[in-house]
Design a protein around this nucleic acid. Structure first.
Length: 893
RNA sequence: GGGCGCUUAGCUCAGCCGGUUAGAGCACUUCGCUUACAACGAAGGGGUCGGGGGUUCGAGUCCCUCAGCGCCCACCA
């Protein structure tokens, strides 16, 4: 059994993944039937999407949670799946059709859907393979797709129920229309960007003389104006209220109305009202009973209502109309203006508020429940501050437009009777629809299903329960619902998370998860959003290929804090790749050390050295701290602490010390090896949820090596079959009285190393030392360790509490102990005096500070342990000062 | 117009319940291939924790305020 010098993730990852999966460890059934479940529903990626850092982030976090729960003995279930992503997928397929010289309109609905399913089958597996590559321990047998049979049934069920509850209705409303996609989109799918534009000023002529100046950013909407509004108390225009104005060019007659919505301070203080093309104007129009005039077609060209401008694009119309108005002497001026331009989240084209007939969900009753769930603490949001965002959005929520004029998606289960849209039935299936229709409208009915499909988010809103079988009462639904944690990026809190909470509370009468954990966006090294145009996109697959999955995962998990964006630096990924290698090499050392111990060395009772006690105590502290941090979802900090422990304490100090202890042979060596094994084993367990591959591989190597050796060194529980299902560490109460002495040793070693370096002692040269002071006796048992770590000559290393300083030595004063280093011929006495003076000054300053502290109110008001710590510090400082002063006096004499 | 976040070493970030002259990685300087690891080790330099005020025995950590940067929500033409 030999481990190569460098950890080779490339030959490890896939092998382990397949092995874990083959053994059923990704399934909750690998735990006893009475085990407590722990469930996460995956945020389903777009079925034909490509892996990006956001995916890597959620996989890292959710897999961490799942693996942790699994190791704690829970029936951990991570339900995987993909989303049909209506608009995104349809766009991709349409693009493909265009490339092959056809279009969806040309091939028709049925053939288009066939093509899309084909596309899905062809590319749908890719994202899943990529998720697997990141180590996601999902139960792939339970994988779902938003358009598979079961989930489609759930969608129908949900729609029908909502409709029958009166929460779904159809209405002609001003919706956000995407002219290129030719579909409505929801409010959430519109993004506003500040863009340079012009504000056009012109005069509305009033019948009977005079005029009202108004301003607009979109002159083409003038053609749809149905009123001019002024503030009721505006003296400038009061005379015109109730009179008639004339729409430029069209000469249509419209009223001048008064509405307090108008801001007298802004622009001209008067407002043109276009209820058919502006959301605010729509509301004003409703208040005043104004007619709606729609001047545009679905493709955002002007329609017959635009008179002479019919057929023009909205942009062309704007130019032509303005030119005509200028010619007619109606214009006043234009000025530069920054406009909040509504753009489609998908295509980026300008969204047109357009009058159209759509289906809506009245989400208010559900929103109330979702609000209450968070307010009452039934659902907890991490980080907490997002609770406020939740509150704001849900309290001012508006109806959700759920119909999309697309083909790829769940078709709306509404059937119109005999071509009359006023007569309709809503049913789960066509048969059911016919039955209903016949009942209501007679035997001779012909039904036609609504051509529209549902918003993609409608199906994902049901995800936590639809994936478990709902509406069927399946065993999975009973056992695994509600799920536990919903982990995702804060950017889809409204799109997805809030809607899941709403539908679950309505249909399941329960919360869908008790905790919402939100992570931030992954940005580039300098905090810029990753974008193709900027060319700063970091591809997770490339990172994984170069540094390994573990390195990327650990970077994402420890590089930031919950809910905050993370700037990804490759230099960090590289150091974390090195961390994996460090782990590997520690294990390599421990494995190799086995041959230095024989079963006969086993002591009757364990006798832990100071170093053993120290590392065991540090392990206990680390485990306790990690568990506490995990309880608060502070995975980043926990990961950093494990890293510090393993590298900074275990590798840098204990492993080095172990080299000496192993050399002593006998029971000492045996115990040392058992401590090495135990601590490494526990650390690997703590790290497994973060970096599953290197930990499992290392653990298996260790296990094999120890089993082969038959040393009788093993944890009480024995070895589990695999780390992935091994027990999560628990804190143990051990009596470790000497643990603190090792800290003293570390201090002394560091101090000696420093002195050596500053005096230019060549590394290989062993020097002599005298260790004095009250702590000397406690360090004496560690003589060989001290000698090894500090490069001392063991023959010329002595411990004596009252030892006097020899001639020509350096003095290292630590308070409890003092080290004298007689560096024959190398001590520059002037330099040493200077150094001692500096240290003395520094020490005295500290004494002044601490004694001042202890003399003040601090001693009474601070908690006793804190005061005690300062008292002890003062004692050490004073001892140090006396020592330094003494030495200085001696040298100055 | 509301709300939120960030501002700590040259860079990227930690610092969780306030505890006493601030930590990591990278970069930098010096030294070392010592039989786990040069994807490493040892030593070192580097920060008035954005500004101001307050609470407290004690503040990077809590409160107020100002500034800069970023994000979200919102109906100012």
């Amino acid at each position: 059994m030999s481990m190569p010098k460098t950890y080779d993730f490339a030959s490890t990852e896939e092998r382990l993944y397949l092995w874990w999966e083959k053994n059923g460890w990704f399934k909750p059934e690998c735990r006893p039937a009475d085990a407590e479940p722990f469930v996460i529903s995956i945020p389903p990626p777009n079925v034909t999407g490509e892996l990006h850092m956001g995916h890597a982030m959620f996989v890292a976090l959710e897999d961490l949670m799942i693996r942790h729960a699994r190791m704690r003995g829970k029936a951990a279930l991570w339900v995987p799946g993909t989303d049909h992503a209506g608009i995104a997928t349809q766009l991709q397929v349409e693009k493909m059709l265009r490339a092959s010289g056809t279009s969806r309109q040309e091939i028709g609905r049925e053939e288009f859907l066939d093509a899309t399913w084909e596309w899905k089958d062809k590319y749908g597996g890719r994202i899943v393979r990529q998720l697997r590559g990141l180590g996601a321990s999902c139960d792939w047998d339970r994988q779902r797709f938003t358009m598979d049979d079961g989930l489609s049934e759930a969608v129908l069920e949900a729609f029908v129920r909502l409709y029958r509850m009166g929460l779904i209705y159809r209405g002609e409303r001003l919706v956000n229309w995407s002219p290129g996609l030719q579909t409505a989109v929801s409010d959430l799918e519109v993004e506003y960007s500040d863009e340079e534009a012009l504000l056009y000023y012109f005069t509305y002529p009033i019948d009977g003389g005079g005029g009202i100046p108004v301003a607009t950013t979109r002159p083409e909407t003038i053609l749809g104006d149905t009123a001019v509004a002024v503030h009721p108390e505006d003296e400038r225009y009061g005379q015109y209220i109730g009179r008639m104005a004339r729409v430029p060019i069209l000469n249509r007659e419209i009223p001048v109305i008064a509405d307090a919505y108008v801001d007298r301070e802004f622009g001209t203080g008067a407002l043109k009202i276009t209820p058919g093309h502006d959301h605010n104007d729509f509301e004003i129009g409703q208040r005043h009973g104004l007619p709606l005039v729609n001047v545009m077609n679905k493709d955002a060209t002007m329609n017959e209502q635009a008179g002479p401008y019919a057929g023009l694009t909205r942009e062309d119309c704007r130019g032509r109309l303005w030119a005509d108005m200028e010619a007619a002497g109606l214009t006043l001026k234009t000025e530069p203006y920054v406009r909040q331009t509504p753009r489609s989240q998908r295509g980026g084209e300008i969204i047109e508020p357009l009058l159209s007939k759509q289906w809506f969900v009245d989400v208010e009753p559900m929103a109330k429940m979702a609000l209450e769930a968070v307010r009452s603490g039934r659902i907890r949001i991490v980080p907490e501050r997002f609770g406020k965002v939740w509150e704001n959005w849900l309290t001012q929520i508006r109806p959700w437009c759920i119909s999309r004029q697309l083909w790829w998606g769940h078709r709306i289960p509404v059937y119109y009777v005999n071509g009359d849209e006023a007569q309709l039935v809503v049913a789960r299936t066509e048969e059911e629809a016919y039955a209903l229709a016949r009942q209501r409208y007679g035997e001779e009915v012909v039904l036609e299903q609504d051509p529209d499909v549902l918003d993609t988010w409608f199906s994902s809103a049901l995800w936590p329960f639809s994936t478990l079988g709902w509406p069927a009462e399946t065993p999975d639904l009973r056992r695994y619902f509600p799920t536990d944690v919903l982990e995702t990026g804060y950017d889809i809190l409204f799109f997805w998370v809030a809607r899941m909470a709403m539908t679950s509370l309505l249909f399941m009468n329960d919360i869908p998860f008790h905790t919402i954990y939100l992570h931030g966006l992954v940005r580039d090294e300098h905090g810029r959003k990753m974008s193709k145009t900027l060319g700063n996109v970091v591809d997770p697959l490339e990172v994984v290929a170069e540094y390994g999955t573990d390195a990327l995962r650990f970077t994402l998990l420890t590089g930031g804090t919950p809910g905050n964006d993370l700037n990804l630096a490759l230099s960090k990924v590289e150091s974390n790749r090195n961390f994996a290698n460090k782990i590997w090499n520690i294990a390599r050392f421990v494995s190799r050390s086995i041959e230095r111990v024989s079963p006969a060395d086993r002591p009757a009772a364990p006798d832990y050295s100071t170093a053993d006690q120290w590392i065991l105590a540090r392990l206990t502290e680390t485990v306790a701290s990690v568990n506490r941090l995990f309880d608060s979802y502070l995975y980043g900090e926990a990961g950093r602490q494990i890293n510090d422990f393993l590298w900074g304490d275990f590798a840098d100090w204990y492993v080095e010390t172990a080299k000496v202890q192993l050399g002593e042979g006998g029971g000492r060596a045996w115990t040392t090896l058992s401590v090495l094994r135990y601590v490494l084993d526990q650390a690997l367990r703590l790290l497994h949820p973060y970096i599953p591959y290197v930990t499992e591989e290392t653990w298996q190597q260790l296990k094999a090596a120890f089993q082969e050796a038959g040393l009788g060194i093993a944890p009480n529980e024995g070895w589990a079959e695999a780390l992935i299902i091994a027990d999560w560490p628990r804190t143990t109460a051990l009596d470790l009285p000497a643990a603190a002495d090792f800290e003293l040793l570390r201090e002394l070693v560091r101090s000696i190393r420093n002195a050596r370096a500053e005096s230019g002692v060549v590394p290989g040269r062993k020097i002599s030392a005298i260790i004095a002071g009250p702590g000397a006796d406690r360090l004496a048992p560690m003589k060989p360790v001290l000698a090894f770590l500090a490069g001392l000559d063991e023959e010329r290393l002595t411990f004596a509490a009252g030892a006097a300083a020899p001639e020509n030595c350096l003095t290292l004063s630590l308070g409890e102990v003092t080290g004298y280093l007689p560096l024959a011929g190398m001590v520059d006495l002037d330099q040493e005096r200077e150094r001692l003076r500096e240290e003395l000054a520094d020490t005295s300053a500290q004494i002044e500070r601490v004694s001042g502290l202890l003399a003040g109110p601090f001693a009474q008001k601070a908690p006793p342990p804190v005061v005690q710590k300062e008292r002890e510090r003062l004692v050490r400082l004073e001892a140090s000062r006396d020592e330094l002063a003494g030495r200085l006096a001696a040298l100055e004499a």
